[in-house]
């Protein structure tokens, strides 16, 4: 039982770090600034969730799990905020996205 749990935790951590690695590659090889953000956001979304989730299984039920959950929650709230601040600052500074197509506002969202 313990062995299986540990295996699952290890697999979660490894798959998370693979997403992180792919995001690093994306941030390096995407063609322009805005697409590079998409690459980097790959490292900021599922990567931390999987890595910290795996570590939480390692730790079992204890204060450590609470701390890991706090780190995860904090990362998930701040990283999109920081990314938005960055993208918006670049946009306001006049950095144009490349080769984009514009779509009109959709008919029925908002609710």
């Amino acid at each position: 039982m313990n062995g299986i749990l540990e295996l699952v935790a290890g697999l979660l951590v490894i798959s998370g770090s693979l997403f992180v690695l792919a995001g690093g590659i994306g941030a390096l090889r995407m063609p322009d600034f805005y697409t590079r953000i998409h690459g980097a956001s790959l490292t900021d979304s599922l990567g931390p969730v999987l890595v910290l989730g795996g570590l939480m299984i390692y730790a079992g039920l204890s204060l450590i799990t609470v701390k890991l959950a706090a780190v995860m929650l904090f990362l998930l709230v701040t990283s999109p905020t920081a990314t938005y601040a960055l993208a918006n600052a670049a946009l306001l500074a006049g950095l144009k996205p490349e080769g984009v197509e514009r779509m009109p506002t959709g008919p029925e969202e908002g609710a």
Binding site: F19, A22, R29, G39, G99, E101, G106
Partner: peptide, 21 residues
């Protein structure tokens, strides 16, 4: 996105969209 990042660049089609809020 993992596929897009590791795949060819021609698969990208950046688009800007506006959502009514």
């Amino acid at each position: 996105v993992l596929r897009l990042v590791l795949g060819p660049r021609s698969a990208l089609s950046p688009t800007i969209v506006e959502v009514d809020a």
